[in-house]
Every structure is written in structure tokens, then in C-alpha cells.
Amino acid sequence: MSHHIVEFRDVCFSYPDNTPALDGISFRITHGESVGIVGANGAGKSTLLMHMNGYLLPSKGTVVIGDLELNKKTSRDVRKKIGLIFQNPDDQLFMPTVFDDVAFGPINLGLSEEKIRERVDEALRVVGCLPLKEKPPHHLSSGQKSAVAIASVIAMQPDILAMDEPASNLDPKSRRQLINLLKGFKHTKIIASHDLDLILEVCERCMVIKEGRIAADGFAEEILLNKVLLEENGLELPLSRQNIIYTRKGQDERVGKT
């Protein structure tokens, strides 16, 4: 299947105050790939994601989603293909109840009432939030909000999922559930995050962004274990791959003493 492609061709973008954010980004993500986007604060990760659904349009270069070149006219169709999940779930959940929020997308797709209910239930079940259906978002915990935000997007059944820091504000257990959830998706996945361990677990491919340019692009296993490359780009090795011998050693010593 060739139509779940995300392709950036030499995309440049500056904010209205002339802050350059993207400076000639080119890549191609094909169907079913899971790609992590990492980089220091302000490297351009969020700006990059906002180009994927036409919220921002490149000042130079083109973005192609599926078989559509992204511009003002096609942006609505592109938004049906790509589900974008933002960093702050409070911005993502804007309707008064969980049900209304998850149903918002399907309603706008023009589905029948029965179909909408089905989709909402299905999406909430996938993220394990079905019992929260009638609750207002301000009575949910951060973890629940994040999960519902994901449900609100998968209810639209997009071909591609793009996420900005999906695991920020989550406690370890919720984060683990999220990782398992993401691993289960067959969609094309694009995840921008500082949580390198999450990227390592979920993504096969990884792109490093620095000052609006792609500094590296390759297998996640290779890039995320390349200490020199990571440190050059304001990152460090994923915690799970850092030397954990210290603690082991400490324990061994303690065990030895007693």
C-alpha cells in the first residue's frame, strides 16, 4: 500500500517573527513504519508535526501525505488521514464530556449515529477508558486525559498517528500502558519525544533534529545507542542503556558485607 506515505521535500519554515524553525527538512516515511523524532528543546519537533496536518504550511518545499500534496485546499482531506495528538491533553480534549470529545471527530466525518457510538466505544475500549465515558475531562487524572486524547484520535481511524510527547505527565504505570498500546497499533506512527526509552521500545526508525535540520536518520537501535551523536545533539543515551552497573555493584557489595 503506497497511500500511507508521509513525505517532506526540502521543507523550510519561519515563524512570523522570523525565528527560523525548519531549514530544509526532507524525509519519506512509508506505510506501517514507526518513526521516532528526537532532538533538544526548540529543535523544531513540534513545528515539524504541525506541518503534517496543514496547521502550519511550509514557506518553502512541499509536504505530501498519502497521494495529496498538502495545501490549504487539501488540508481537510489530509486531516482525515493523519491523527495528530498534542502534548497537552487539556488542549486536545475540548468538549464537555469524554463521550462528546471522542465523538467529535467521527461526527465531523459525517458517520451515522450508530456508527459513531460504535467507534466511540471501540476507541475507548482500546485505551481502557470505557467506564469514563460520561465524565467531564476536568474530573480525569493526567493519565486518563492522555488516554482519552488518544482515543479521540483513533476513533477517526486515521491511517497515520502523529504524537507530540505522548508520555509526558504520565506516571510509570500509565506510561507502560501507553507503550504497550502504541506497540499494538498497526498504523504508521510518528512520535516526537524526549523519552528516548519509549522511542527505543516503540519505534524501528529514528530521526534526530537539530536546529531545524535532520542531523541523523536511521535504525532506532543504532542511533539511540550512538553516544557521541546523541550528545552532540543535546541528548544522552536512553536510561535503560546507560550503565546500570553502579547500582548492581553497590548491591553486590552490600550483599558481600552482610
Binding site: 496547521y55 486531516r79 482525515k80 495528530l84 475540548f94 465531523n108
Partner: peptide, 15 residues
């Protein structure tokens, strides 16, 4: 932005 990504077209539709 979040509304746009979920197909908002200027009309709030609810069930």
C-alpha cells in the same frame, strides 16, 4: 489546532 485535526469545519456538531 486540535479541533482542526479532528475535522472541525466551523460547525459544532453534537449527537
Amino acid at each position: 489546532n486540535a479541533m482542526l485535526s479532528r475535522g472541525f469545519d466551523g460547525k459544532m456538531k453534537t449527537m
